[in-house]
Amino acid sequence: MASELTIVSWGGAYSKSQLNAYHEPYSEKTGATILNDDSSAEAVAKLRAMNEAGNVTWDVVDVVAADAIRLCDEGLALEINPDEDLAAAPDGTPASEDFGDLLVSDCFIPQIVYSTTFGYRTDMVGDTPPTTVCAVFDTEAYPGKRALEKRPINNMEWALMCDGVAKADVYDVLSTPAGQDQALAKLGTIKDDVIWWSAGADTPQLLADGEVVMGSTYNGRLFSVIEEQKQPVAMLWDAQVFDLDGWIIPAGLSPEREARARDYIMFATDTQRLADQAKYISYGPARMSSAPLVGQHADLGIDMAPHMPTDPENAKNTLLYNYEFWADYRDDIDAKWQAWLAQ
């Protein structure tokens, strides 16, 4: 087994939570040296380039599930057998059942459940704070700018749901050109009031500056705006979209490095480790058996369970990122989306 491994992740508070929950205990246990690389945002392109050059320098890579599916399709990630490669739950439940439906790709080992949801300025919405996601499209009741992500995913779903399409029918409608036009038309009603973001840190900043009245971003970012920076911001959990983030092992590693990467994955995704990560960041562990072990925030000392996107109180109306749909339709809808944005 190689004595060194390079782990790629997103940087910032997220990498720090992994350092505390996974890397340090692992190094202590095995003596392996862990090198960090904050390149997850461009992991797909870089892995393809490394693979073509025949020199993969990464051992374990943290990616969102959609990217993992793409990497798996391209043959750039190693296939995983959950019951052999991952630790069983403490009560003996095999990993494939413990992770359940979250194993969305043959190459993907889920780590956290996060959600894309809205936050709003409590001092800019008057006495009637928004309760549904459709407030985003209601510029009369909630004047001011909104921050939305500069991509069709999630925005198209919300637009259709607020345009009278039932939640169950959203993807059927969205797979037709007429449905795509309908979603864009709905978004068109607020186009002049939108600031489009492309980095997760944008919306928290725009909210803190009072530049927008509400905006979508990852729930962990809103948690730190609200609980750590104490800004007058509140969460609108309605219609939050669950997404997954997790590990892949790149294809084409030498046997020693692959053995080390597998050993790390086995350790870092066991029940206790996933629960530990929630002490440092408000993302829900991907194992069912980890949920009861989620405790308090390591610095703030507050209970983390109510801040998890999966908490029953927050998860009354949720969507799950439709991986299959977007893997097929992303190129097509994105072309329309870009043309629509440029109009």
Partner: peptide, 23 residues
């Protein structure tokens, strides 16, 4: 050889839905 999904992604640029057909 695990090449079929790669071809699916390629053809999906031309016709939506080919990626999942191959997968």
């Amino acid at each position: 050889a695990k090449q079929h999904t790669r071809l699916g992604s390629r053809l999906n640029y031309e016709k939506t839905g080919m990626a999942s057909m191959f997968r």
